[in-house]
Each structure stands twice: as C-alpha cells, then as structure tokens.
C-alpha cells in the first residue's frame, strides 16, 4: 500500500539517530589501542596492543571478573527456575491475584535501581545480614526473574495446550510431558531469557553498589576507575571486555528467537 518513500530529511534524521546510538560505543575500541596514558586525547597519538597484556597480568581484574561471572551465573540459574515457574503458572489459568502478581514481577525493574538497592540495603541492615557474594546474588536474581519471565511467557502463550493433552493421552506422565514436550518447546525462549539475564547481571552496577559491601565486581572496578581514573589504558581494555560479555549473549538471544512471533529483548 505504501509505495511512497520516506522524505530525505526523515531518512537523514533516522539514520543519523541510529549512528548516534552506535558511534560512541565504537570509540571504546579505538581507545583500547591508544598509546596515550594520562588523558583521553583524540585522535590517539599512536596505536599499541600493550594494554591487553597489561590487563591480562592484573590479578585484581581477574578477581573482579571471576566474582562477576559467579554472580551472573548463579543469579541467572535462580532466575531461570523461578521465572519459568511463574510464567508457567501465569499462562495456565486465571486466578485470584493474577494482576497483582504480574505487577510484583515487573516492579524490580520498573522502579529505579537505586530503590531496589536501597531497599535491600535497609533490609540487610535491619536483619543483621553481612554483605557477601550471596547478598549480591539475592539482588541480581530478583531483577533477572522478569527477564526470563518475559521471554518464557510469550512462548507459553504461543504453545497450544493441545500438545500437552496429546502427550497425556499417549500415556506420558506429567514429568515425561515436561521433559519431552514442554522443555524442547520452551528451549530457545528460556535460553534467550537466560542470556539476557546473564548480560544484565554481568553489567549491573547500581543495585550492586548497595549489596556488595567491600567486594569488587567488574562493573564496580570500572566505576571506581571512572570516578578516580588511575589506569586509563587498562580501563579502556576492561570496558571492551565488559561490552563483549554483554553484547555477545544479546546477539545470541536475538538469533535464537528471531523466527518467532516474540523476539527477545522487547522489554528491559
């Protein structure tokens, strides 16, 4: 119906906007190779790869990365189990309090992170819980549930109830139906949700600063460098690593779900 083309002004504005979204990130890659140590001078006076070796030999970076990976993996697993359960329940039936539960699930990301962080901080303080890796995971898993939920609930909606009934009619019990029918059908949606949750957790800094105490995750390491820059070239390399650790799972999630009616990442 619309054979008409977009006006030149609109095309320039739209493509310009898209470039505006991407060019700043590309700059990170350039700066990772700069020979300039003390300022953010542009253009870089020269290019070098020595900072990659320098970053590689830094135990503090490895420790921060290990903690971030551990937190992200455990939080993602918890979120995948809880998110799948709640999406299964929500897609099955209408029951009393359904609306309230869906509000409760999205609340941790609907409210600004500082509120989630400050709330957890108050609760830990009142309950006398000391900061530990567990307190970080507790916070991360909470806001990751909604990511898994969003992906799984869309797939459940598309999945017809017929296949489950067919499975039961053929003599499968509930667990066999879950393993052979439900899980393969949910597979890519769950995987996509898990990857997005991992990316979100690996990169999270706002809630983490309230629940980490003295521990340093990779984003917290970066934040300290941002506030008081001490080793700019190494920070540039770390920024690249953090970017890759979030970018790749997101891309994978997109390719896992792009053929479905629901594509991953619609709601963050």
């Amino acid at each position: 119906m619309h054979s008409e083309r977009a006006g030149l002004g609109l095309r320039i504005a739209a493509l310009g906007g898209l470039l505006f979204l991407h060019l700043p990130i590309l700059l990170i890659f350039l700066y990772a190779f700069t020979t300039e140590e003390r300022t953010y001078a542009f253009p870089p006076p020269g290019l070098t790869t020595e900072w990659f070796a320098a970053a590689w030999n830094r135990p503090d970076i490895w420790e921060a990365m290990a903690l971030s990976l551990k937190v992200a993996l455990i939080a993602t697993l918890i979120a995948m189990v809880l998110g799948t359960l709640v999406s299964a329940a929500m897609s099955r039936a209408t029951f009393f309090g359904r609306e309230q539960i869906s509000l409760l699930i999205i609340l941790p990301i609907a409210l600004p992170g500082v509120i989630t962080g400050m709330s957890l901080r108050s609760a830990f303080g009142m309950a006398g819980i000391d900061f530990s890796t567990l307190t970080i995971i507790l916070g991360h898993a909470t806001f990751c549930i909604v990511i898994v939920y969003n992906n799984a609930v869309a797939r459940f909606r598309r999945l017809s109830g017929g296949v489950m009934e067919a499975s039961a009619d053929l003599g499968a019990n509930a667990f066999q139906t879950f393993w052979h029918i439900l899980l393969p059908n949910l597979g890519t949606a769950l995987l996509a949700g898990g990857m997005l949750a991992f990316a979100l957790s690996f990169d999270e800094v706002i809630v983490t600063t309230f629940t980490a105490g003295q521990q340093t995750t990779l984003p917290i390491w970066m934040l300290e460098e941002l506030i008081r820059p001490r080793q700019r070239p190494v920070t540039n390399v770390v920024a690249m690593i953090v970017f890759a650790a979030t970018f790749l799972p997101i891309l994978a999630a997109y390719y896992l779900t792009r053929n479905g009616s629901e594509t991953a990442g619609g709601g963050k």
Binding site: L18, I25, Y31, D203, Y254, K268
Partner: peptide, 28 residues
C-alpha cells in the same frame, strides 16, 4: 533497525557512560 535499537538498549550501561566520558573530555 531492530538490532540497531536493541543492541544499544541492552549493551553495558557503564561502558556507554564511559564512552561519553571519552567524548566529552576537554581533550576529547
């Protein structure tokens, strides 16, 4: 366009802020 909007949405918040620190710097 889909990926072009989605990737910046999901990619690291801190890295994006850091990129702007580089851009806005007096010598940037």
């Amino acid at each position: 366009f889909y990926l072009g909007i989605m990737l910046p949405l999901w990619s690291s918040y801190l890295v994006k802020v850091y990129a702007w620190k580089l851009i806005l710097a007096k010598e940037g």
